[in-house]
Nucleic acid binder design. Structure first.
Lengths: 230, 230
DNA sequence: TCTCATAGCGATACACTGTATTTCGGCCTT
DNA sequence: AAGGCCGAAATACAGTGTATCGCTATGAGA
């Protein structure tokens, strides 16, 4: 082999850093879902070999944690309104919208404690909104309850969205039990209440149902704020 | 090769069926978490080749769905108490206990619509508990809200449990921010409300916090039952 | 009873995964 | 100019879900 045959380095190795890796991983996940995120593909986007990433992250799970924290950065509102209720509402809606932008977030939400800086900042914002309005334990319980509701609704909304997409049925049809499976199930007569609900229920769009449920939970919080624990 | 060399079939192929497969998969998941469930390992438990499973399930995702539905069978209470509140409470606690028995359930909860027979039966039970106490839309919203809370709290409880286990810290220590990471984060001063909460908050056991949050959500439901929508 | 078809099962194959280990090439120091 | 070192890349490995292929044992028909 002469000098002339020697292939020149195809790309001068780009200096890597965590932020670049996270951005690439998020882009991949936005396009093809979480399962499209492989260390090889992330590395390829950055013109690097897979092993190179291990200088910046120590495991794939850690990469996921970093992705989640990055999105928590999008969730943090720039300024907090004074009213606690409005503050919690804003964070909730921002979380939901983030999950609609990054559907994979639903897969990760609540899966691990959120200890990243942005995740903690979001928790801080929730706590701060209620700070001083009740004893600290009540405040914590309130934040935990609202957060739990959030995780649950968002997961369900995304799950339904994917199901509709996969079956090609509109939400209306699906809720109306037009799917052959549901039709068969309901026909057994074992689920009278469900049948009635599917048949007579109004179908509301997810945002509205999200908001209603959220308001209920916030009502419950309001109730406890006005009645300190026994 | 003579007849004498011919190896006899090592195990007369056990007649397989979905139930056997599901049971084996659940056993594996109970022992080693979801990621310990591979089609090869499930098949091995049943003295079968991996491909054999594809006669009964068409994809791994489907196996997961079946596992979830199986556990929903454990959740269904044998008899419904008359009081709607007690009925919902029972289902909630049974769900939580099922998730503690099968921690992997937390990873799957809310991830996909629950359309299996047992899953539908659980939904039916929730709807039935509230049937007639308000218009059908209010009832649906109530069930959805409670279910969302359930998914969220359970996920969080399991996530925390795993984190404690992994770090070797007791929940007390972790909540007290004894972890080096948390200590550093709180020391930045960027999270005053969180710091106060961690510092001054009483640590309650997860079951109690679960119950309190649940009661709040049920209070919210009670409120709406007494005030039909505008 | 002998032959043939068929169905079901195992083995093989493939493309890919996360990660450990090894190898190599270029730079810096002496 | 030589040697050492460090970072990146290549290789390696054990495993994954699933498609395909080939055999074998059984049942049907003649």
């Amino acid at each position: 082999m002469t000098v002339w045959d020697r292939p020149e380095p195809p790309n001068p190795p780009v200096p890597l850093d965590r932020e670049l890796i996270i951005t690439a991983a998020i882009a991949l996940a936005d396009e093809g879902g979480l399962e499209a995120v492989s260390l090889r593909k992330v590395a390829a986007r950055l013109n690097a070999g897979p092993m190179r990433l291990y200088g910046y992250i120590s495991t794939k799970q850690e990469l996921f944690d970093l992705m989640v924290d990055e999105v928590h950065g999008e969730i943090l509102p720039e300024e907090q309104p004074g009213d606690w209720r409005e503050a919690l509402r804003v964070v909730a809606h921002r979380t939901r919208r983030a999950a609609l932008r990054h559907e994979w977030l639903a897969d990760l939400l609540g899966g691990r404690p959120t200890l990243g800086p942005n995740g903690l900042a979001v928790t801080e914002a929730k706590l701060a909104a209620l700070d001083g309005l009740a004893d600290i334990d009540t405040v914590m319980r309130a934040v935990e309850t609202v957060s739990a509701y959030l995780i649950g609704v968002i997961r369900r909304e995304i799950a339904n969205l994917r199901a509709e997409r996969a079956t090609g049925l509109s939400k209306r049809d699906w809720q109306r039990a037009s799917g052959p499976h549901m039709t068969r199930m309901l026909a057994t007569g074992r689920f009278p209440a469900l049948t009635k609900a599917v048949h007579d229920g109004t179908d509301v769009d997810p945002e509205r149902s999200f908001t209603i449920g959220l308001d209920w939970v916030l009502d419950a919080v309001a109730l406890k704020l006005s009645q300190p624990p026994a």
